[in-house]
Design a protein around this nucleic acid. Sequence first.
DNA 1: CGTCCGCTCG
Length: 493
Amino acid sequence: MSSSSLSSSLHCFPPPSLTFQNLKNNDRLIHNFNTPLELKQLHARLIKTNTPLSILPLTKVAFVCALSPSFSYAHQIFSHMPNKNVRSWTSMISGFVQCGKPKEAIDLFMKLEDEAVRPNEVTVVSVLAACADLGDLDLGRSVHEYSTKSGFERNVHVCNTLIDMYVKCGCLENARRVFYEMEERTVVSWSAMIAGLAMHGQAEEALCLFSEMIKLGVKPNGVTFIGLLHACSHMGLIDEGRRFFASMTADYGVIPQIEHYGCVVDLFSRAGLLEEAREFILNMPIKPNGVVWGALLGGCKVHKNIDLAEEAIKHLSELDPLNDGYYVVISNIYAEAERWEDAARVRKLMKDRGVKKTSGWSSITVNGVVHEFVAGDQTHPQAEDICKIWDKLLVKMKRRGYAPKTSVVLLDVEEKEKEKFLYRHSEKLAVVFGLMTTPEGTPIRIMKNLRVCEDCHAALKIISGMTSREIIVRDRNRFHCFRDGQCSCRDFW
DNA sequence: CGTCCGCTCG
């Protein structure tokens, strides 16, 4: 459909003849069509027959399309929609967030500010979710201020999303404050806070919060238990994890889903109970997915079990053949055992299957500008300075007992070469840049798309002590907060 | 009603 036909049919919209009944009928009509394709065809048909559409069904079209690859179609409808109101804007923003485009959601939110449309509670929820995804603390904070001024903090959805936003931006303290100051808390609020504490390695507090919630008579749901199990697996609380898994069905009637099985496999695998994890998978009442085998594979890497890793990868290459992460891990397991030929074989398999390795990056925001670094990066305008400062820092670090852990460099090269690779890891570059460009004593916040490497973990601990800086790193799925030479994860992760 | 919390891997 061309955009001109779309815009012309919507031009005099809503037409004067449109009755309430017509609106109702169209609404019902749209509700019977739920796949994006069906809606698209219906839309075309309505336009051909000159049937007027109401704003409401249009937003429904936009919303459903937003959940699918035909998102551009929704955007097209949106841009031709006359008299856009706060609901049409919000549909679009939330659509962007839900299909994993938080940047676009924020761009749209910025445009909204130029229009005479005031964001409401639902808009705020959507844009805060985008901030959470991106770790955009600055915007998150200003949307929080706006919410306070507008009286939106009485809305439980807004507060729940604020908790999640602060958690994912690394401000656990602010998340706690929102949580404790809320007037009423739902199971979502408790679950968000528990999951947040889990993400920050505060398992004991997460477990306490759960007891508190039960005491107050709040009924936990499946998501609550994911948070709890997550907390247990990331802190090595095996027995507690086992108990929660048993009790979720026995005491609370919550049937475990694939995600819960994933958590338990992760719990066992991380702790080194690989055989038990394997047995657990083989006895699961539902078909294990890639995440479940992936959790076992992760444990095999940490605890160096090649045989089990090979069993896991056999399943993974069928269940999730296009996910580069698994190939990288198995290849690294081989490399660590100096089985270079096997490692090369996996890399070739990746290539044959057209799977591309995601390269690691770290980013830091300074004065509203996002600076992104990849390993070995020399393209940053201040790359030279970063290296100089690092070299100075390194001398002092070594005096404080930092020993480069060259074993994490899985390349068949000399020791000195390995050190060079190590010193150009993206998180180190980002932290040094943060030290150079932000005022003394202020926290340094880093985002990373992959996991922190062991050497960087050790290095950042020492740097935090040396410079009296708090360094907060958001990993792919959790936080490391370095302070006074220690990490919040207590080195179990 | 267009809204919130969610398992693995480098």
